[in-house]
Design a protein around this nucleic acid. Structure first.
Lengths: 151, 151
DNA sequence: TATTGTTATACTCTATAACTATA
DNA sequence: TATAGTTATAGAGTATAACAATA
């Protein structure tokens, strides 16, 4: 956080940008990222590793190409992260016996424990990020976002 | 676009991630960025330069530190972009007479023309990105997003 | 002593090309 | 011939430190 502090910016005209959803979404994403690190850095998780480990938790044996597609990562970049996660003892990679080109990813017990800890922080984090909204509005927002989302 | 194509990913369990607004917002932002380049690349605009030029258009004489704060950019990075925009003849920078450390940014007539062209593409682009929603739902979403946004 | 803007630089994220091993 | 995964590398985006000019 070295970005200049707010000052007389209040009287500026932001109407056009505030009506541009792409711009507002970018600001919100930065807010979620900042909040993510505040919450999950103590567990050593980044937004990317959180999503990867969660996807593996719910889909044991998933292959890297599926993870890459769903999380919008390029396979070479995912390979590097998976190498780190394996080195940290959080996931295990093993050759598929059906298609020996494919690698099946599963969580280790250490990975499972980490995600249990992470899940405990998740709901409060989400609530904090959406604090300006009521419970009903939060549900509405999440539903609308999922309809707009590519998946 | 070299990310693997969708295949058997449909039968995977994505419930946890879909209930995580930060994750869905990230996917949506990528969708908006892709769509932005499809729409505005012909004008030579990026999401960053679009936002900067729009902010200058609506706030002529705005100083770089305010732009940086509002757009969540760091001043050294903004400096570089402003240099490019000035070199492209889209903005003009002049020393403030009140505070001679400050630089006042304004659009050139070329910059104004560019933004008129850009504005014509904006509404259709936004509508396309939010196509899965009805008109009323679009308004609701934009209103909720603005309430969650830091500004 | 603090702030504005700049330069230089480092770091992270994302993207592409080329290779291997399997199919 | 095509696909899964890997390696190496390039590029864009973001971050920090140090400085000059001005307040």
């Amino acid at each position: 956080m070295a970005i200049a502090t707010m000052a007389a910016e209040k009287q500026l005209d932001l109407a056009a940008l505030r009506g541009t959803p792409g711009f507002v979404i970018r600001l919100i994403q930065l807010k979620f990222f900042d909040g993510f690190y505040d919450t999950f850095a103590e567990l050593g998780l980044t937004p990317a590793t959180y999503a990867i480990l969660m996807l593996v938790r719910d889909n044991p044996g998933i292959v890297p190409s599926s993870v890459a597609t769903l999380l919008r990562l390029h396979l070479p970049n995912l390979t590097k992260i998976l190498h780190q996660l394996e080195h940290a003892g959080l996931v295990k990679r093993s050759r598929s016996k059906i298609d020996r080109r494919a690698t099946e990813i599963t969580l280790t017990s250490k990975g499972e424990k980490l995600m249990r800890d992470a899940v405990r922080l998740t709901a409060p984090y989400n609530r904090r990020m959406l604090a300006p909204l009521s419970e009903a509005e939060r549900s509405t927002l999440i539903e609308l976002l999922n309809r707009v989302s590519p998946f």
